[in-house]
Amino acid sequence: MNVLQLISSGGMYGAEAVILNLSHVLEREGDRSVIASFANASQQMHERAQAEGLTSVLVPCSGQVSVPTVHAIRELVSKYGIDVVHAHGYKADVYCWAALRGGQVPMVSTCHTWYDNDLAVRVYGAVDRWVLRQFARVVAVSAEVEQRLLTSGVRADRVRRIRNGIDPAVFSDVANGRAGAHRTSLRVGLVGRLSREKGVDVFIEAAAEVLQTLPDIEFVVVGEGPDRPQLEEQIRKLRIESRLRLLGHQEAMLPVYAGLDLMVSASRQEGLPVALLEGTASGLPLVATTAGEIPTLVVPGETGLLVTPGDAHALAAAMLRLLSSETERLAFGRNARARIVQEFSADRMSADYREVYQQAARSERRA
């Protein structure tokens, strides 16, 4: 089967990592995955895919409405003999629908989430959910996204929930080296976009509380986003600049995971972040909120600890518990990696997607 992966977002975040993992497994299993990135937003994704030996092309796109983009998608479908087009992101969904509606090539979309933080995003989300009613299959990464799809009118028999997956082997060396590492100071990390839904402000507040008991702990945040100025001001007001740093975007994540002793997610809203899968695959214990699908990843008291979103005091208490016990941290980290290998592999995710592609193709033929 030949699949066109159409992606419109910029940067290298969770969705992009999912597409790369999925494409590698599909290729290994004998299918073909062609990655098509919008030229005005996804240049980095295109370059990364090429560097990893995947077939990757740039789709011309400029402004809010681009007729050449529609034509380019149709040409790619013809050139590569595409059987299914898999769109990722609201912009990709809309252009996919504009290019292929009424045709014979089935459309599949993965919906990672809609945060609806402002009017523009709410409008985009509403348009996206209307367009998705025309798709053969729509994949949701969480129960919340699935429910929003159903509420917006997407037929239940077309919706499928699939958990994100990664290749655990990539993180084996980091995980194996953790037990032998003897650190003089401990480091706690959060990886995520600097925006309200990720709860970085709650993490900062909790870090300040932890430092009152364990003043030598180091905290880092990896990621960029619109809330950076407010978060920097919060750090200054709490007078913890020497113990908590905003590192910005990091291209190489393996050294980041290797340098951490504990990983934290303070999200208010969430799907299933790829960063959490990567961190736990690296042998890190996890303190996280119960947002989205995170509870499917964490087994409380075995692989990590869960707290209520927005509760900085509970987040601090959970961090203090694991920071105070090396034995528990290492045991949780080993258990967390084992769970990733068993339940959250890219192979499992790709098998689920292959089934969705086949269902989409069959439904299009029947239509």
Rank of each mutant, 00 (worst) to 15 (best):
residue 198 K to F: 02
residue 281 A to K: 04
residue 249 H to F: 03
residue 111 C to F: 07
residue 116 D to S: 03
residue 229 P to T: 05
residue 247 L to D: 03
residue 316 A to L: 12
residue 155 R to M: 07
residue 63 G to P: 03
residue 275 A to F: 07
residue 43 Q to T: 00
residue 205 E to T: 12
residue 348 R to V: 00
residue 191 V to F: 02
residue 4 L to C: 05
residue 358 Q to A: 13
residue 144 E to I: 13
residue 285 P to D: 14
residue 10 G to F: 01
residue 7 I to N: 05
residue 264 V to R: 08
residue 278 E to P: 12
residue 325 S to Q: 15
residue 232 E to D: 10
residue 20 L to F: 02
residue 168 P to T: 00
residue 35 I to C: 11
residue 326 E to T: 14
residue 178 R to L: 05
residue 211 L to M: 06
residue 171 F to A: 00
residue 225 G to A: 09
residue 322 L to W: 07
residue 351 A to S: 15
residue 360 A to W: 08
residue 179 A to F: 01
residue 209 E to G: 04
residue 88 H to V: 01
residue 100 L to A: 06
residue 291 A to F: 08
residue 102 G to M: 08
residue 347 D to G: 12
residue 251 E to M: 07
residue 308 T to C: 06
residue 56 S to G: 00
residue 291 A to D: 10
residue 152 S to M: 12
residue 318 A to W: 11
residue 64 Q to P: 00
residue 362 R to G: 08
residue 219 F to P: 15
residue 156 A to N: 12
residue 141 V to L: 14
residue 214 L to E: 05
residue 47 E to S: 11
residue 195 S to A: 09
residue 341 V to L: 00
residue 219 F to A: 04
residue 103 G to V: 09
residue 59 V to I: 15
residue 222 V to C: 06
residue 45 M to H: 01
residue 363 S to V: 13
residue 191 V to A: 00
residue 54 L to M: 09
residue 177 G to H: 01
residue 362 R to Q: 10
residue 353 Y to D: 04
residue 125 G to D: 07
residue 267 S to L: 07
residue 59 V to C: 05
residue 187 R to E: 13
residue 196 R to F: 15
residue 320 L to S: 09
residue 315 L to G: 06
residue 185 S to Q: 13
residue 157 D to Q: 15
residue 19 I to E: 05
residue 24 H to W: 14
residue 229 P to M: 04
residue 118 D to C: 08
